[in-house]
Design a protein around this nucleic acid. Structure first.
Length: 869
DNA sequence: CTCTCCCGCCACCCG
DNA sequence: CGGGTGGCGGGAGAG
C-alpha cells in the first residue's frame, strides 16, 4: 500500500448509526495498523487509523461513509480500490480524514436541511406531513436528532405532531401569532426583570433589590401558561400530548426571553439560570451544564430559522456566549388591518411615494390607542424587524429606527409577501414556486437540496451592519459570532427610539412612479417593494437605502412573498437580492464599532478592506461598476473558502439576472432629510461586465445613472456609482446581481463611496479607523450625520463593515448623469470571481462543505458581484 | 483552556 | 411489551 494520498473526501457520515458489521470485528487491528503504516498523511490520520483499528464500529462507519460518499476525492479512486480490498479497514480510515467534522454534522446544519425540505409558507391547501423516519433517512441522521429539531419547531408551532412518526408542517404562517403569545407570556412572567436581575447579579454580584422581589413576585404559575397556549391553528396540536417536555418548553421560554428583552440579546448563562430556577427541581447546579447544552440545541434550530444569531456579549468579565434575536419583533398578525401610515408617519414624504405603503397595524397598537407618529414608526420598524426576512436588522446600531421610511417600505413589501394580500404588488411579483430547486428561482428556498441550501439567507442580506461575515462564519454555518456589548447595545436601542426624525435618512421606497422612471420595471415585481429593509439602519446612522428598483430584481420581487424562507439557504439568496439591491445602508461608524469588543476583528477587516479599497481598475463601463461593486470582501479568511462558495452561488444569481433581460437596475437613493436629499438612480447594472457577456444584454447599460432631484431635498447629485462595498454584503448574498451591488455597505463602504458634493460628510467615516487613510482621499458620503450620533453601541459588527472591503466606488457628484466611465469601481472581486457568474447557475452544490456556510457569510461579504475579474 | 454540542444510552410512555 | 420519544450527560472537536 503505497501511501495513498490521503484524500480528503470524506463522506459525511450522517448516518451514524452504527451497524454492526461483524466482519470487521474480526479484523485485527494491529495488522491493519501495520498496513496502514503506509504513512498517514498527518498525525491525525495516524490516530484515526489507530482508532479505527481499535474500533470496528468506527471502521464500519467510515467505510460506510466512503461508500456512500463518492465525494470528490480524486485520489480516492485508486485508493479506494486498494482499500476495499483490504477490507476497508485501513483504507477506510484514510477516508476518514475527511470526515465531516463536527460542523458538518451540527444540528444547525441539519436543521437547515430539514427546513429546506418544506416551504416556509405553505399554501393553505397543501398539507405537508413529515415522516420522521423518512426525514431521518433522507438527511442521513438518526432519528434522535430529528426529534431535537422537531421539538423546537413544534414549540413555535411550525410543526405539530400528527401521529406516530408523523408531524404536520405548518410553516411560518402563524409564527407571528405564536411569537406574540410568547411575548405576552414572557411579559407576564417578568422575564425581562429576571434577566436584568441575573445579569446584574452576575456582573456585579451586587444584590439587586429587584432581584429578590422579582423572583418572589411571580411564582410560576405562569409557566403552566406556557403550555397552555395553544394555537388553534394547528390541527393536531391538541392531540399532542402533554408532555411538553423540556425541550419544547425550554424552547418557548428561551424565545420569550428574547422577545421580552430590550436588547434582544440573551446570554446563555442567564437563560440557563432562569430555566433552572423555574424548574421545579431545585436548582441544581449540576444542571446548569445540561441546560446550556440544551440551549445550544435550541439555539441551533432557532438560528436556522433565522430568528436568532450568535453573538458574544462582552462584559467586564469577559465574553459570554449569547444569542441575539433577529427575528420579527413586531408580530402583527396577518389579518390585521392595514393602516396607511404613510400619511401620519411620513408627512414629508411624498405621498406618492409612500402612499402606497401600508402598514399593518397591530392590534396592540390599536389598543394603545392613538397611533402617533412615533409609535407608528416604531411599529414599523418592528415590523420590519419582524419579518423573517429581515432578520437581520439589528437594532444594535444606533441606526435602528432611523430609517423609518425604509421600514415602511419594508413593511410594505413584506406585507405583500406575507400575505398575499398585497395584491397590488403581488401582481407584479411572480409567485415563486416553492419547490424550486433552482437557486435561481426566486423563491426557492426550500428547495431542494438541503445540502445546497445551507444558509439561511437572511443573514447576509440585511444586516450589513452587524453581521458580518463572521457571523456567518462557518461554524455551523449558521452562527456567526459577533461581539457585542450589551450595554452598548442597550443604549443603542434606546437611541433608536426616536423614530422619525427629520433627519433620518431614509430610504427610498420605490414608488410606482419611481419605477416608472426607471422604467424597467419589467420585472419589476419585486423591486419595488423590496428594498427597504435595510433599515438596519441600525447601524447606520446614515443609512441610505437605495432601492433598486427594477431589476434588481425581480427576484426580489419574487422574493419571497413568503418571506420567511430565509431558512432555507436558497431562499436566502433570493432575499438577499432583494435587500441588497435596494438599499444601501450606511453603517455605522467604526467608531462605534470600536466599542465593540472585537477590536481584533476590526483590525483584520480593516486591513483587508483597505486593499479593496484601492481602486481597482475600473472599467468605464457602467457595467463594471455594478459588477464590481461586489467586491467582496472576503476579507476574512474566516470564511473559508469564500470565493468558491460564493462563486457557486453567485452564478446562480447571475444567471438569473442575466436572464433577465435587460433590466436595468437603477437605484434610487434618496437622502433623508438630514442630508440633502438627493435622489439618485443608479443603474444597477447588470452584471458584471467583466466576465459576462451577459452584459450585452443590457443595453441599459447605456444609462448608467440617473440623478433625480429630489424634490424635497436638496438636491444632490448623485451618485454614481456603483459601489459595492461592503455593504454589498447584502448583495453578496445575492449572487447574481452584480449590478445590484450597490449596496453601500456600511461604513466601510460608505466611506468608500464618495459622494461628491455631498454634503454629507461623514464624520464618522473619518473616524473609521482603518479606513481612513484610504478614505481620506475620498470624500465619503455620509449620509446621515444623524446617525453618527449613533451610539457607539452597535457595532459589533461595525468593525466588520469596516473591514469589508468594499469596493470602492466612486461617486461623481455631478448631478448629471455621469458617464459610466467615470465610474470606477473597484472591486475586490477576488473572491468573486465566480465563475459562476458566468455560468453556471447552479453550482453544483458543493458539498456540505463549509462552503455553504461560508457562502452565507460570504454572501454578505461578497458583494456582488459578479464580477470577478 | 473554554465553548460547543454530538452521540447515543436508556428511561419513559403509549398503544 | 415493543417501539416511539426524548432526557441526559460523557466526552471530544473546535477555537
Amino acid at each position: 500500500m503505497a501511501p495513498k494520498t490521503p484524500i480528503k473526501n470524506e463522506p459525511i457520515d450522517l448516518s451514524k448509526q452504527k451497524k454492526f458489521t461483524p466482519e470487521r470485528n474480526p479484523i485485527t487491528p494491529v495488522k491493519l495498523v501495520d498496513r496502514q503504516q503506509v504513512e498517514p498523511w498527518t498525525p491525525t490520520a495516524n490516530l484515526k487509523m489507530l482508532i479505527s483499528a481499535a474500533s470496528p464500529d468506527i471502521r464500519d462507519r467510515e467505510k460506510k461513509k466512503g461508500l456512500f460518499r463518492p465525494i470528490e476525492n480524486k485520489d480516492d479512486a485508486f485508493t479506494d480500490s486498494l482499500q476495499l480490498d483490504v477490507v476497508g479497514d485501513s483504507a477506510v480510515d484514510e477516508f476518514e480524514k475527511q470526515r465531516p467534522s463536527r460542523k458538518q454534522k451540527s444540528l444547525g446544519l441539519l436543521c437547515q436541511k430539514f427546513l429546506a425540505r418544506y416551504p416556509s409558507y405553505p399554501l393553505s391547501t397543501e398539507k405537508t406531513t413529515i415522516s420522521l423516519d423518512e426525514v431521518a433517512v433522507s438527511l442521513g441522521v438518526e432519528r434522535r436528532r430529528i426529534y431535537d429539531i422537531v421539538n423546537v419547531l413544534e414549540s413555535l408551532h411550525l410543526v405539530s405532531r400528527v401521529a406516530k412518526n408523523q408531524y404536520g408542517w405548518h410553516g411560518r404562517h402563524s409564527l407571528p401569532k405564536t411569537l406574540r403569545n410568547l411575548q405576552r407570556l414572557g411579559e407576564e412572567q417578568k422575564y425581562e426583570e429576571q434577566m436584568a436581575y441575573l445579569q446584574q447579579k452576575e456582573l456585579d454580584l451586587m444584590d439587586y433589590k429587584f432581584g429578590e422581589r422579582r423572583k418572589d413576585g411571580d411564582p410560576d404559575s405562569q409557566e403552566q401558561q406556557l403550555l397552555d397556549f395553544s394555537e388553534p391553528d394547528y390541527p393536531s396540536s391538541s392531540a399532542n400530548s402533554r408532555k411538553d417536555k423540556s425541550l419544547r418548553i425550554m424552547s418557548q421560554k428561551f424565545v420569550m426571553l428574547f422577545l421580552v428583552s430590550k436588547t434582544k440579546i440573551v446570554t446563555l448563562d442567564v437563560a440557563a439560570k432562569i430555566l433552572i430556577e423555574e424548574s421545579q427541581d431545585a436548582p441544581d447546579h449540576s444542571k446548569f451544564k445540561t441546560k446550556v447544552r440544551r440551549l445550544y440545541d435550541i439555539a441551533n434550530v432557532l438560528t436556522s430559522l433565522a430568528l436568532i444569531k450568535k453573538v458574544h456579549v462582552t462584559e467586564e468579565r469577559g465574553r459570554k456566549p449569547a444569542f441575539k434575536w433577529i427575528g420579527p419583533v413586531d408580530f402583527s398578525s396577518n389579518d390585521e388591518e392595514l393602516v396607511d401610515v404613510s400619511a401620519s408617519v411620513l408627512p414629508e414624504l411624498k405621498r406618492e411615494t409612500y402612499g402606497q405603503i401600508q402598514v399593518c397595524a397591530k392590534q396592540k397598537l390599536a389598543r394603545h390607542g392613538s397611533f402617533n407618529t412615533v409609535q407608528a414608526s416604531e411599529r414599523i420598524q418592528r415590523k420590519v424587524n419582524s419579518e423573517p426576512s429581515s432578520p437581520y436588522r439589528e437594532e444594535q446600531g444606533s441606526g435602528g429606527y432611523s430609517l423609518e421610511i425604509g421600514s415602511l417600505a419594508a413593511v410594505y413589501r413584506q406585507k405583500i409577501e406575507d400575505n398575499s394580500q398585497g395584491k397590488a404588488f403581488a401582481s407584479k411579483r411572480v409567485v415563486p414556486p416553492s419547490s424550486g430547486l433552482d437557486p435561481v428561482a426566486p423563491f426557492p428556498v426550500l428547495s431542494v437540496d438541503p445540502e445546497y441550501c445551507v444558509n439561511p439567507l437572511a443573514h447576509p442580506v440585511f444586516s450589513v451592519a452587524q453581521t458580518d461575515l463572521q457571523a456567518f462564519s462557518v461554524q455551523n454555518g449558521l452562527n456567526g459570532q459577533v461581539d457585542v456589548s450589551l450595554a452598548s447595545a442597550a443604549s443603542a436601542v434606546e437611541s433608536l427610539k426616536p423614530a422619525l426624525l427629520a433627519g433620518q435618512p431614509l430610504v427610498y421606497v420605490p414608488s410606482a412612479s419611481l419605477f416608472m422612471l426607471y422604467g424597467s420595471l419589467q420585472e419589476g415585481p419585486a423591486s419595488g417593494s423590496g428594498s427597504e429593509r435595510d433599515d438596519r439602519n441600525s447601524a447606520a446612522p446614515a443609512t441610505v437605502e437605495l432601492s433598486s428598483a427594477p431589476s434588481a430584481q425581480k427576484r426580489l420581487s419574487e422574493e419571497r412573498k413568503p418571506q420567511e424562507e430565509d431558512e432555507p439557504a436558497t431562499k436566502r439568496q433570493s432575499r438577499e437580492y432583494e435587500d441588497g439591491p435596494l438599499s444601501l445602508v450606511m453603517p455605522k461608524k467604526p467608531s462605534d464599532s470600536t466599542d465593540l469588543a472585537s477590536p481584533k476583528t476590526m483590525g483584520n477587516r480593516a486591513s483587508i478592506p483597505l486593499k479593496d479599497i484601492h481602486v481597482n481598475g475600473h472599467l468605464p463601463a457602467a457595467e463594471e461598476i455594478s459588477g464590481k461593486a461586489t467586491a467582496n470582501c472576503s476579507v476574512s479568511s474566516e470564511w473559508g473558502n469564500p470565493s468558491r462558495n460564493t462563486d457557486a452561488e453567485k452564478p446562480s444569481k447571475e444567471n438569473e439576472s442575466t436572464k433577465e433581460p435587460s433590466l436595468l437596475q437603477y437605484l434610487c437613493v434618496q437622502s433623508p432629510t438630514g442630508l440633502n436629499g438627493f435622489n439618485v438612480l443608479l443603474s444597477g447594472s447588470h452584471t458584471p461586465p467583466t466576465v459576462s457577456p451577459s452584459s450585452g444584454q443590457l443595453p441599459s447599460f447605456s444609462v448608467p445613472c440617473m440623478v433625480l432631484p429630489s424634490p424635497s431635498l436638496g438636491h444632490f447629485p448623485v451618485l454614481y456609482s456603483a459601489m459595492p462595498g461592503p455593504v454589498s454584503s447584502t448583495l453578496g448574498a445575492l449572487p447574481n446581481t452584480g449590478p445590484v451591488n450597490f449596496s453601500l455597505p456600511g461604513l466601510g463602504s460608505i466611506a468608500q463611496l464618495l459622494v461628491g458634493p455631498t454634503a454629507v460628510v461623514n464624520p464618522k467615516l473619518s473616524t473609521l479607523p482603518s479606513a481612513d487613510p484610504q478614505l481620506q482621499g475620498q470624500p465619503s458620503l455620509n449620509l446621515s450625520p444623524v446617525m453618527s450620533r449613533s451610539h457607539s453601541v452597535v457595532q459589533p459588527e461595525s468593525p466588520v463593515y469596516m473591514g469589508h472591503p468594499v469596493s470602492v466606488v466612486k461617486l461623481h457628484q455631478s448631478p448629471v448623469p455621469v458617464t459610466p466611465k467615470s465610474i470606477e469601481r473597484t472591486h475586490r472581486e477576488t473572491f468573486f470571481k465566480t465563475p459562476g457568474s458566468l455560468g453556471d447557475p447552479v453550482l453544483k452544490r458543493r458539498e456540505r462543505n463549509q462552503s455553504r456556510n461560508t457562502s452565507s457569510a460570504q454572501r454578505r461579504l461578497e458583494i456582488p458581484s459578479g464580477g470577478a475579474d
